[in-house]
Amino acid sequence: MSGSPLVGERAAHPAYGVLRQVTPTAAVLLADNPSPMTLDGTNTWVLRAPDTEACVVVDPGPLDEAHLARVAACGPVAAVLLTHGHPDHAEGARRFGELVGAPVRALDPALRLGSEGLAGGDVVAEAGLAIRVLATPGHTADSLCFLIDHDGPPSVLTGDTVLGRGSTVVAHPDGQLADYLESLRVLADLAPGTAVLPGHGPELADAGEAARGYLAHREQRLAQVRAAVASLGGAPTPRQVVELVYADVDRVLWPAAEWSVRAQLEYLREQS
């Protein structure tokens, strides 16, 4: 789940149903689930080393049989990895794992199919790749990123931690702003030229640059929230803050913005 508006009219996106090679080791299938919260839809990533038959699938997406069948056709599938448990990324994971006979690995035990989980510091050795797991909580408590460094420029699959367009919701209370800021610092320290392969939106050229931009945006929002709290008398409701700080944002996104404001208010209380 992201936090940015869908751009353009609701129409068949040219990428729906088409496997697009993005890097030598990563291809993407766009799920047909566009919305204000998912942009053009969820990016399902198919990972494999060149000349390797088996693949790793990241975020099978919603429970959409047509989409899952298209992803399954990219197999054989050695493993399914989840960046986090929001339904637009994970709802179809169990069905997909059963369809292709592969384990589903996630930080949250409730999302797994099979006994093996995932945690920061793990390395998933499948499909000719060594996929390094980064713990990146903040958007949600269970958010993970996956770093690939294989015979060329590295790339990182970021789920909803960094999007290809717009900014991300901190899904309070599960998501915590302090955690999110630290996760952005982790991404900001990745090697220059590490490509971002996001859960929504287009790929980005440099994870460090993107993460630093997100950090600057969060600092700007925190300053706006501080000013709003002061102008509203010191104890406003999150909705009152949203109406001031997010006045230029489409109102359909205000409920999601309220999650982030709750996270910001809690963060400011903890810092005071």
Results as ranks from 00 to 15, higher is better:
Met1Ile: 15
Gly3Ile: 09
Gly3Asn: 01
Pro5Trp: 00
Pro5Ser: 08
Val7Ala: 15
Gly8Lys: 14
Gly8Phe: 11
Gly17Leu: 10
Val18Pro: 05
Val18Cys: 01
Leu19Arg: 01
Leu19Cys: 02
Arg20Ala: 06
Gln21Phe: 05
Val22Thr: 09
Thr25Trp: 14
Thr25Cys: 13
Ala27Cys: 07
Ala27Leu: 08
Leu29His: 05
Leu30Phe: 11
Asn33Asp: 13
Pro34Cys: 12
Asp40Ala: 15
Asp40Gly: 08
Trp45Met: 14
Trp45Lys: 10
Arg48Phe: 02
Pro60Tyr: 11
Pro60Ile: 10
Asp64Val: 13
Glu65Pro: 04
Ala69Tyr: 07
Arg70Ser: 05
Arg70Thr: 06
Pro76Gln: 11
Ala78Thr: 07
Ala79Trp: 13
Ala79Phe: 09
Ala79Met: 09
Gly85Glu: 13
His86Ala: 12
Asp88Cys: 15
Gly92Ile: 03
Arg94Phe: 01
Phe96Val: 00
Leu99Val: 08
Gly101Gln: 14
Gly101Ala: 14
Pro103Arg: 15
Val104Thr: 08
Asp108Asn: 05
Pro109Asn: 09
Arg112Pro: 05
Gly114Trp: 14
Glu116Asp: 15
Val123Pro: 07
Val124Gly: 01
Glu126Asp: 13
Ala130Leu: 14
Leu134Gly: 10
Gly138Ala: 02
Gly138Ile: 06
His139Gly: 00
Ala141Phe: 05
Asp149Tyr: 00
Asp149Glu: 09
Gly152Lys: 12
Pro154Cys: 12
Ser155Val: 07
Thr158Cys: 00
Thr161Cys: 11
Gly164Leu: 04
Thr168Arg: 01
Val169Glu: 05
Val170Tyr: 08
Val170Asn: 05
Val170Thr: 12
Ala171Asn: 00
Leu181Thr: 13
Asp189Ser: 15
Asp189Lys: 15
Ala191Ser: 12
Val196Pro: 02
Gly199Ile: 04
Ala211Ser: 06
Arg212His: 07
Arg218Val: 08
Arg218Tyr: 09
Gln220Ser: 13
Ala223Met: 13
Val225Glu: 01
Ala227Arg: 08
Ser231Gly: 11
Pro238Thr: 12
Asp248Gly: 08
Asp250Cys: 10
Asp250Thr: 10
Asp250Ile: 08
Leu253Tyr: 12
Pro255Ala: 07
Ala257Val: 02
Glu258Asp: 00
Arg262Cys: 03
Ala263His: 02
Leu265Trp: 00
Leu268Met: 14
Ser272Val: 09
